[in-house]
């Protein structure tokens, strides 16, 4: 799981052009959007695309469930792990 979290942090950094942010700067439990890392709505769309490209995960934009998955690296890792096991 930790390996997956590191992988997802790197994905977030690469897909969203986060300058000067390293994997170590991202706390797995901190919020990705607005507070915490400070991502915005364009990032949410871009991240959705990256998840689709890398893991074949399709999410409905702006659903309550997607919001939950996008809360933090921890919740994203759970989503990706459950998708891999499915």
């Amino acid at each position: 799981m930790n390996e997956l979290k590191t992988e997802l942090k790197q994905l977030v950094i690469d897909a969203l052009d986060l300058e000067d942010v390293t994997v170590d700067d991202i706390d797995s439990s901190e919020p990705l959007f607005i507070d915490g890392l400070g991502l915005d709505s364009i990032d949410a769309l871009e991240l959705g695309l990256a998840l689709q490209k890398c893991y074949g995960i399709k999410l409905t934009a702006d659903s309550e469930e997607t919001r939950k998955h996008f809360a933090s690296i921890d919740s994203l890792a759970e989503l990706v792990a459950s998708h891999k096991n499915a």
Binding site: L16, D17, I42, D43, L45, E46, L49, Q52, K53
Partner: peptide
């Protein structure tokens, strides 16, 4: 291929 939303905007 799907378009990058950030790049589009």
């Amino acid at each position: 291929a799907p378009l990058s939303p950030a790049s589009f905007s």
